[in-house]
Nucleic acid binder design. Sequence first.
DNA 1: GTCTATAAGGTGATAGAC
DNA 2: GTCTATCACCTTATAGAC
Lengths: 219, 219
Amino acid sequence: MPRPRAAEAAETPRRIRSAAISLFAERGFHGTGIRDIATQAGVTLSSLYHHFGSKDDLLVDIMFTSTAPLKRAADAAYQALDTPCRRLAMLIEQHVWEHVTDRLAKIVSDTEVRALSGERRDRVVSLRDSYENVWRTTVEEGVATGVFTVSHPKALTIGLLEMCTAVSHWFQPSGDLTLLELCHTYADGGLALVRAAQEDRPVRRADLEIGEPTRFLLG
Amino acid sequence: MPRPRAAEAAETPRRIRSAAISLFAERGFHGTGIRDIATQAGVTLSSLYHHFGSKDDLLVDIMFTSTAPLKRAADAAYQALDTPCRRLAMLIEQHVWEHVTDRLAKIVSDTEVRALSGERRDRVVSLRDSYENVWRTTVEEGVATGVFTVSHPKALTIGLLEMCTAVSHWFQPSGDLTLLELCHTYADGGLALVRAAQEDRPVRRADLEIGEPTRFLLG
DNA sequence: GTCTATAAGGTGATAGAC
DNA sequence: GTCTATCACCTTATAGAC
């Protein structure tokens, strides 16, 4: 018994998208030819253009397909959990989890925004901003209630986000460190980070008397 | 009185390098044409090829010129300071300082390694590894002496490094937050991070009962 | 050291048959 | 929906005069 035609038809764009993701992640958007994608997907050039209007459209499609689930999960977690600590921990763990399980698409989403321009770029940036706003809101509410103590919340929040994003570039699960352990470790790290200005913290920069950062840089 | 000829001659490659840095940072290596660089530097195409053997050579030159001072400063700081806390704080502050004051070259160094291959790539990666080894060694010594308490040192060290690297992409000095304050804030953040598994830390992931990261992701 | 001119091949995208 | 063939352009790099 043959598969339904609709399922067969939907298979081709999926293969094209998958081929584009791995090539864009490895060589970059401008480093990848439209022919390379077609070849790796096992279709001809014209077939590719039948499913995607342009190379730019293909990139936008990849970015939305990659970012939208993360935004949905962030909204769901924010709604379901009830304290800044719980929300931030879950945001961190979801972000890390997705950036490992869907790592190639995440690399493309996080490095190739600059390849877009105009309205296409605006839509992608807008979705990413709405996702990051969940993080920012969570941190701000933690600072407002006093459970987070950090001297410059915005700076550390974006730093924390980038730290979690970067797992796409280096992490490989092993016996030493599974993906789940990585998520837990980064959640604890993030919670420590947003309390970095706690008064009674034992090790603080100001007590070290190390001078300023330019001390070994100039000359 | 005219300038010395040597200084005039050395000015042209400097202008070429500067033009290439800003274009590679903005559009990426493959998104930048060799003609764009020549035009922005105010020289002809052949003049560019007289100073740099190829587009790849130009990229390698940029990466070495950008990374070498950071490695030198890291070695100097490691030698001059005497505890893991002091060394790590200074490594963080130097890294952040350089990634802001020389931000375009750092963006190129950090995102375009994939554009290289073969021996050129090996040399660049080798220099970067030797720099990161100073960080790794510092964290390991802190763990060995017990002043750093972190469940997975490698994972948090590379995360911390990426967090500091990312300042190139977003930070702009302002009245709210100067570059020096950013350096200090990140040093304190880093010190909090490498003590994230401290037994008596008040807010810990395990106490939050939030479930696992897939809770809001599947379905 | 810098120039003009050009080689040699890759690029995104389309036309039109089947 | 998929194919072959092709257009118009852009790319890195080099040749050879001055």
